[in-house]
Design a protein around this nucleic acid. Structure first.
Lengths: 248, 248
DNA sequence: ATGTCATTGTATCAATTTGATACAAAGGTA
DNA sequence: TACCTTTGTATCAAATTGATACAATGACAT
């Protein structure tokens, strides 16, 4: 019974997809790695397929008359409900064996696959990887299309992933490390106000190394990218830390 | 007369292109920015279109069953005649208005454009930018397809460029600067043996800044990436510099 | 031969940046 | 009020970087 409802929901949203497919560039997709920061850990937002214990990145296609960046933003907004997210392309995945069709068959089980979908998905795909930096607390994950639900996962404890999506996340993380911009990354991943300690945890989890508290503080303050606010009134048994905010 | 011969050559190679087009992924291309180093300047290899005073990067398409990286290597080999070149993707260009068709019409002048080509080129294109690092002295530019000839240009003195190719070169240069790896770049752009002074000129032209001779020498030697060979017997009126080679 | 000139290889010192440690100032609890 | 913990800041040593000095070399003119 429950299974039947899901199957119905699945095919219903598929109808929508089918109608829009002719307006997309064939064999080309966008995949977004959505990073968030919570509880001292770097997270990625993933979605689970109906009927399968497999998770995937949020992907989409590009309209014939649509800028690629715009397509990435649209895809992202569809799945998170927020706009104005920081987004940047980091790599193109173009191996010859990037097919999604065999996977489609599993999702559809014994339901016949519509011809439009078959023609679209049976070909090999090239995909642009984008990464997004979002304020964890502002995201309200939206399930759409073939997805049953969304959830945040620790970057180092990923579930079983679809296609080459685990590789894509790995590449995104490498890119983030290599081209780390303290202001950009902090500004987009942290909430409005935060303590120096929380900020340090962010960079530690991204770079995978520990910093010395006092030197980290000096380094960040010397950059002059933060405004110091009032001290935070903690209920903890120690001196209350200052709160900071990124200068605009 | 001369014009007529050129037109003939143009359409003859076009026949070849037409036959291969159905095996390519539509609306998707690869463009290579080929960097070389000569006479204290960073150069890019460009090709000139027949009948037009417009130069372009070397581009190509991707076979349906071909890895994207392989397609880039193939394209590069077609135009330079050398294999095993260092090649890396750096950006994907996906603005909605990336059309080549209007340009095609100019090239064809009043010759009718074959339908296969028309269908292929009339759509908007997405292009992956690759950059190549080659030993200037080893390249023997090969003209192919719609190109009349190839030539090296100083990165800062580009001729009139086709499409958005000037932007693509700019992006490639920015990428090269941002992710500068001293060993990688030097190893691929320098000839087998070179003096410290020549190496310094390379990094100065890439980064667009002057270094202090003595400190540059110390910095590079401290990296332990070079082997020192015998001194070079110059005909110059001063102390002969050592020759160096990158460690393998 | 000898002196001049330009360039190279190396040493050296100062200035700056980075790493490590010390310590007083809170904020809560016993 | 003593005690514990964490925070903010100062300070010193170590490492890196910037700037300058100088002897060594190779060709040429005298």
């Amino acid at each position: 019974m429950e299974n039947r409802d899901q199957k119905f929901a699945l095919t219903a949203t598929m109808e929508e997809l089918m109608r829009s497919i002719p307006s997309y560039i064939p064999q080309f997709s966008v995949d977004c790695v959505i990073f968030g920061f919570h509880g001292s850990e770097l997270k990625v937002l993933l979605s689970k397929f109906h009927n399968l214990d497999i998770w995937a990145l949020h992907g989409g296609f590009i309209g014939q008359d649509e800028d690629m960046d715009a397509a990435a933003h649209r895809t992202l907004c569809d799945h998170t409900g927020i706009t104005g997210i920081y987004l940047e392309q980091f790599h193109i995945f173009g191996k010859a064996n990037r097919q999604t069709y065999r996977f489609m068959e599993t999702i559809f089980e014994d339901t016949p696959i519509p011809e439009v979908l078959e023609n679209f998905f049976k070909k090999r795909f090239i995909s642009v990887g984008y990464f997004a930096l979002v304020d964890f607390s502002k995201v309200n994950p939206v399930s759409a299309l073939v997805f049953e639900k969304s959830a945040w996962f620790d970057v180092h404890e990923l579930p079983k992933m679809a296609f080459d999506h685990a590789d894509i996340i790995q590449k995104a993380l490498e890119y983030l490390r290599r081209s780390l911009d303290y202001k950009l990354v902090g500004f987009n991943l942290m909430p409005e106000c935060f303590t120096m300690n929380e900020l340090q945890r962010l960079y530690e989890t991204i770079l995978g190394e520990k910093f010395q508290r006092t030197n980290f503080q000096r380094k960040i303050l010397d950059m002059r990218i933060l405004e110091r606010l009032a001290t935070k009134q903690t209920g903890k048994g120690h001196k209350a830390p200052f709160l900071y905010r990124f200068k605009t």
